[in-house]
Amino acid sequence: MHRRTFLTAAAASLLAPLAARAATDYTPGLVKKHLAKGDIVFLDFSATWCATCATQERVVNELIDENPAYGEAITFIKVDWDTYRKAELTKSLKIPRRSTLVVLKGDQELGRIVAGTSKSQIKGLLDTALKAYSA
């Protein structure tokens, strides 16, 4: 096998698990569509330059690795703060800032974390979402 082919295949195999659990990027109407289907939606209002957001994402991914049921039961949607901070979704949910995590089911907000990075706090939010999925 050629070295370049090997390196490309190796990189792809390492990145595949990351792609599988990656959040869907928000587009207008996406949240309503998932909520109408009865999905549990986990919204991550974040910015690429935000260190708190990066920590939250890392913790969420660690928790999904520890409990794959989160990834199977919950629809993760990443909302780019720089693009959508003034959007209707952001206004209607009264999102105060980037680094805000919100869980929704139907027309109810089940929980939220603003700027929190504690693993136990984020696990609690994911557990709330998982419990709502099972209900």
Rank of each mutant, 00 (worst) to 15 (best):
K131H: 01
Y84N: 09
G111I: 09
L110V: 08
P96V: 11
Q108A: 12
S92G: 02
L30M: 15
C53T: 08
A16F: 13
K32R: 07
A132F: 08
A87T: 14
I77L: 03
G124R: 00
V31F: 09
V59A: 03
M1P: 04
L7F: 14
Q108M: 01
P68M: 06
N67A: 11
G29C: 14
G116W: 01
S92I: 00
T83M: 03
K32S: 14
F6I: 10
W81G: 08
A129Q: 09
T48Y: 06
K33D: 14
L130K: 11
V102N: 09
A9I: 13
K91H: 08
I95W: 12
S99K: 05
A19L: 15
K33S: 14
A19P: 02
S92F: 01
D127N: 08
A87R: 04
K37A: 14
K37H: 12
S134G: 10
L130T: 04
L35A: 05
V103D: 09
A20I: 00
A115P: 00
V103M: 03
A10Y: 03
D127Q: 09
E88K: 12
I113C: 06
K131F: 02
A20L: 13
L89A: 10
F76W: 11
A73V: 07
E88A: 15
L30E: 13
S92L: 03
V79P: 11
L104C: 01
A73E: 05
I40H: 07
D39A: 05
L104G: 01
L30Q: 14
R98L: 07
L104W: 09
A23E: 12
T55L: 14
G111D: 06
Y70E: 05
S92R: 14
G116D: 10
V102G: 07
T117N: 00
R21I: 15
T27K: 12
R85N: 15
L63N: 04
K123G: 00
D107H: 14
V102K: 02
V114Y: 10
Y84I: 13
K32V: 05
L125H: 05
K119Q: 10
A20R: 06
G71Y: 02
E72F: 09
K123I: 07
L14R: 06
R3D: 07
A132G: 10
V31G: 09
A20H: 13
C53Q: 08
E62R: 13
